[in-house]
Write a protein that binds this DNA or RNA. Structure first.
Length: 969
RNA sequence: GGGCGGGUGGUGGAAUGGUAUACACGGCGGACUUAAAAUCCGCUGCCCUAACCGGCUUGCGGGUUCGAAUCCCGCCCCGCCUACCA
């Protein structure tokens, strides 16, 4: 027995990494017309001092597997890498350690490169881009100038989010729960002149074009929610000689608007406030402004507000509408003012109740399921509460007949409805001493009365009574009601669960839970619009307002323009010069890039200006327009700028004439698959789509969308199930795993952990499984390779032909699954298919037969296919085995094995025999057996026959190649 | 409150209308070893059983179907995103 070569990843991994690098094995070839291109993109990392973490490994490995798989199939694959280098953590590190951010970044990047290479990721390193490289950010600045030229970049004095700790302005997106997402400091408001990008100009297209790309559903829906498009109307009201314009999505409820509310920051507040209310209003506004964002964003806080003394007129009803100021109206959305419709908006309802303002319903509720040709009936629902116990009177019809209801009934003739309600309560329950507390509006309820076999539309009015005393008389039931129900007192909580009927539930929620109706229905109390369906009334009322010059249709978005200024050193300088005469003048293109000067201190200044403001010989410049003295813009771009176009630069990374040559963009874009974290769905992904669309409009890129497909990897949590963080001490460093087990093992393990897109916990225990698998593949392969040149003396057993067919079938089955699973990004099941395959190959009997002298061809083709299938997953081991096999070239450019369905055709299939859906036997049959043959075979089974004897076979279901099911009665 | 996921053995998970629990971890037993590790072999959802046979089981309740983890209705629970957005 000769000693096989040992598996030693510490030797073979660095060896092959060096060979791959030296031979530029993974180079993407520009403009190769002979091959189809494929562009894989993984979000480039921010090079933090901590290095790569295991979450990076997951995404980069997954795309690496796909890239290798495609390359082996002959595609011209672009799988590039770069570094998103600007950002606050590096600046903070620089401040703390008195080290230039350029130096810290270079060091971190070197470490990332080393880690990527140690994992065997097949990047084309010749295309590396770095966002803080002036050769790169020259073009970031250039794109900004194009935006400026098209008026999509503008300056505005805005109340911006201000972090008092980091002394910087923040984008809305960086504020989480009123706190700065990075440092947790409560955010304040500060007025500053800011550069802003008009992303809202692209809002509709950013929604529309999602239809043309293949994004995960949750990614697309999150983007749509974030953009938050809503259609409605702007309506102008006159109050105290001022015009107040409100925005509403419910112009149909205009007649129900009983007051107006302005945000405390609304510009008209001071003008409309009457002298007598001035002190109160000033105090309220001051208090509201002093409150932190945190407090204002707390949910369930009571409504507060104050009357301005001014009133407006409702254009439909002519009624007076008091104008209030309240902080539940946000200055930043719509027009910062609303018309309040307390009958049909929960927030307005709470406010009206708190301040005793009038509530006027203008839409009649509709419940139930619409029926065709219904019979109309006038009826009531009575809800009776006993104030002593808090319980509610209910009648229980039994689970089969609709369960619990309150008291319902029809009016007789022209009977007064309240009288009907009292009569029905008495007849059905015997209770008669009731005090009326509230009455509902009329409710249209559609249902099908099964007892009478009739479709009905009832016009029901709800009555809410309290019991004044327990006296009651005997029930007076009709013959068909007797014994059908029981009368029960139930708690409100029980009622909420037990009463399922739409109409009864609606009235219960209205009277007991103080809920209001926000659904659809016909208009009432709306003058000329009465009776109109509210969906139609939306348009009718908007048009009516517009005809009179009182309003107009309007579309609003939650998405705000992108605040593009940061008061920091470590970012791209905004290429603008401020001239006292000519204003903000763009830096001429031939003067780009505007590079960052060396500075001594990186701290932002107390005035909120960036540290660049202190470098006078950098700041002082001349105006490109008039040549007079002028000052450079000292703000820099946000960290999202460099990542908003980097996938374009990968196509032509060394071009110093343009950001990328047109023909290279034509060839490589769009990105075929873009993978990244869910956390970038609403920020980076929207920003980059916006920039891309803008460049498309300038005819600078060939496609309207940057990424054809977007996927997301799940987060890897620490072993404790909590997000990895330094402070928690649960961070796993991939370096240690690579050192201990090898890169191939960590790669395979991360693929095997679970579904790619789901969140999962790191667990060292489960590493053993893949580690053993790799060891078994290695050992088995070495045995086969050794056998290749040896004559073994094992006795050939059985029929070699059948054995060959079996092995080939297993190989093809595995190949089919691995191929499909890689394409569907189901790496965990691809790995388990390979595990099943190696389990078959290493079975003692199988292995012995493979080592027979006559099986030379079989074992060689089996081993070759195994190595090729594994190559994308475990590139180093596969390369080593490939060469051990005597191959000269790299396994990674060898052809992906061809799947041949012919191999799967023969062979017997297992047929399941069921009796009444329960498995009673397994049969082995030829795949082309007829239904009749299968049935006969199934009946012949002893155990099946036993169950068939229990009754008569009513029906036989046969699914060819799968099962036979007998239905026996 | 709204939106989107999800709930399967001791654990990670597989199966998208056709043998539920593949694959792996862990556990138990055995082989090898002076011993341990590593490796190899066997068993491993629950109940009944000496074993076979059988019964039960995919969060809970109902429905559709010859057949449901999978489809439909109702409920419970968990996660993520979002939130006075008028």
């Amino acid at each position: 027995m000769n000693e096989n070569k040992k598996y030693n990843p510490r030797d073979i991994e660095p060896k092959w990494q060096q060979v791959w690098e030296d031979t530029k094995l993974y180079r993407a070839i520009d403009d190769d017309k002979t091959r189809e291109k494929y562009y894989y993109l993984m979000e480039f990392p921010y090079p933090s001092g901590d290095g790569l973490h295991v979450g990076h490994v997951l995404g980069f490995t997954a795309l690496d597997i796909m890239a290798r798989h495609k390359r082996m199939q002959g595609f011209n694959v672009l799988y590039p890498i770069g570094f998103d280098e600007f950002g606050l953590p590096t600046e903070n590190y620089a401040i703390k350690n008195k080290i230039a951010p350029q130096v810290a970044t270079a060091r971190n990047v070197a470490n990332f490169r080393r880690q990527f290479k140690s994992l065997g990721i097949s990047f084309d390193w010749d295309r590396e881009v770095r966002t803080s490289d002036p050769g790169y950010y020259k073009w970031t600045q250039w794109i900004f100038l194009q935006l400026l030229q098209k008026n999509l970049a503008y300056q505005a004095e805005l109340p911006i989010n201000w972090c008092p700790f980091e002394k910087t302005g923040l984008a809305n997106e960086e504020v989480v729960d009123g706190k700065h997402e990075r440092c947790g400091t409560p955010v304040e408001k500060k007025l500053l002149k800011q550069w802003v990008l008009k992303i809202t100009a692209y809002a509709d297209r950013l929604i529309q074009d999602l239809k043309s790309v293949d994004y995960l559903d949750r990614v697309a829906s999150q983007q749509i929610n974030w953009i938050g498009r809503s259609e409605g109307a702007e309506i102008d009201f006159k109050a105290n000689n001022q015009t107040i314009t409100v925005y509403t999505t419910r112009p149909d409820t205009l007649a129900g608007a009983t007051f107006l509310v302005l945000a405390p920051e609304h510009a008209a507040v001071t003008q409309i406030t009457t002298p007598s209310q001035k002190a109160k209003v000033d105090a309220y506004v001051k208090q509201a402004q002093g409150e932190s964002e945190v407090a204002r964003q707390e949910t369930d806080r009571p409504k507060t507000g104050v009357f301005t003394g001014a009133t407006a007129k409702n254009p439909v009803t002519g009624d007076d509408m008091p104008v209030w100021v309240a902080d539940y109206v946000l200055a930043g959305y719509g027009t910062g003012a609303i018309m309040a419709v307390p009958a049909h908006d929960q927030r307005d309802h709470e406010f009206a109740q708190a301040f005793g303002l009038s509530i006027k319903p203008v839409i009649e509720p509709v419940t139930g399921t619409p029926q065709t040709d219904p019979e109309h009936r006038r009826s009531i629902v009575a809800i009776v509460r006993d104030p002593k116990t808090g319980q509610i009177l209910s009648i229980n019809w039994g689970a089969a007949n609709g369960g619990n209801l309150f008291i319902g009934g029809g009016a007789e003739g022209h009977e007064d409805l309240e009288a009907t309600a009292r009569r029905e309560v008495e007849e059905e329950t015997g209770y008669r001493n009731l005090k009326l507390i509230a009455t509902s509006e009329r409710v249209h309820h559609h249902y099908f009365a099964h007892s009478k076999n009739k479709a009905r539309l009832i016009e029901a009015t709800g009555f809410y009574f309290e019991l004044t005393n327990d006296d009651h008389v005997a029930q007076k039931l009709e013959a068909n009601e007797q014994g059908k129900f029981t009368v029960e007192w139930i708690t409100p909580a029980q009622a909420g669960r037990a009463v399922a009927d739409d109409l009864h539930k609606y009235l219960f929620n209205k009277f007991i839970n103080n809920q209001i109706y926000t659904g659809a229905g016909p208009l009432i109390n709306s003058g000329q619009f009465d009776g109109l369906a509210n969906t139609k009334a939306k348009h009718a009322i908007t048009k009516w307002l517009s005809d009179q010059g009182l309003g107009r249709a309007a579309t609003k978005y939650k998405l705000r323009d992108w605040i593009f200024s940061r008061q920091h050193y470590w970012g791209e300088p905004i290429p603008v010069i401020h001239c006292p005469k000519d204003g903000a003048v763009p830096v001429p293109e031939d003067q780009l890039p505007v590079t960052l000067p060396d500075v001594e201190y990186y701290e932002p200044t107390d005035t909120g200006e960036s540290p660049l403001a202190a470098i006078t010989d950098w700041v002082n410049s001349t105006c490109p327009e008039c040549g007079g003295p002028a000052k450079r813009e000292t703000d820099t771009m946000p960290n999202w700028a460099g990542s908003s176009w980097y996938w374009l630069r990968y196509t032509d990374p060394h071009n110093d004439q343009e950001f990328a040559a047109k023909d290279k963009l034509e060839y490589w874009t769009p990105v075929d698959l873009y993978n990244g974290g869910m956390e970038h769905t609403t920020l980076h992904l929207l920003y980059s789509r916006f920039w891309h669309k803008f460049l498309y409009d300038q005819n600078l890129v060939p496609t309207p969308e940057p990424y054809a497909k977007r996927t997301s990897h799940g987060m890897i949590l620490g072993p404790d199930g909590v997000k990895m963080s330094k402070s928690r001490g649960n961070v796993i460093n991939p370096d240690h795993v690579v050192e201990q087990y090898g890169a191939d093992t960590i790669r395979l393990y991360e693929m095997f952990m679970g579904p790619f897109d789901e969140q999962k916990n790191w667990s060292e225990k489960h590493l053993n499984g893949v580690s053993r698998f790799i060891y078994r593949v290695w050992t088995w392969s070495q045995d086969i390779i050794t056998a290749g040149s040896q004559v073994t003396i094992t006795e050939p057993g059985g029929d070699l032909g059948i054995f060959e067919a079996e092995i080939d079938r297993a190989t093809q089955k595995t190949l089919k699954k691995v191929h499909r699973d890689i394409e569907k990004m189901q790496f965990n099941t691809a790995v388990s298919a390979l595990m099943e395959y190696i389990n078959i190959l290493t079975k003692a009997e199988t292995k012995a037969r493979l080592l027979q002298p006559g099986a030379t061809n079989l074992r060689n083709r089996t081993l070759r296919t195994l190595i090729l299938m594994l190559a994308p997953f475990t590139p180093h081991m596969s390369e080593e085995l490939w060469h051990d096999l005597g191959e000269e070239g790299s396994v990674h450019i060898a052809g992906w094995p061809k799947y041949d369905p012919e191999f799967l055709k023969d062979g017997l299939v297992t047929i399941v025999v069921q009796v009444n859906g329960k498995v009673r036997a397994n049969l082995v049959a030829a795949p082309d057996a007829t239904d009749a043959e299968l049935t006969t075979l199934a009946r012949a089974d002893e155990n099946v026959a036993k169950y068939l004897a229990e009754g008569k076979v009513m029906k036989t279901v046969v699914v060819s190649r799968k099962l036979v099911n007998f239905v026996v009665k």
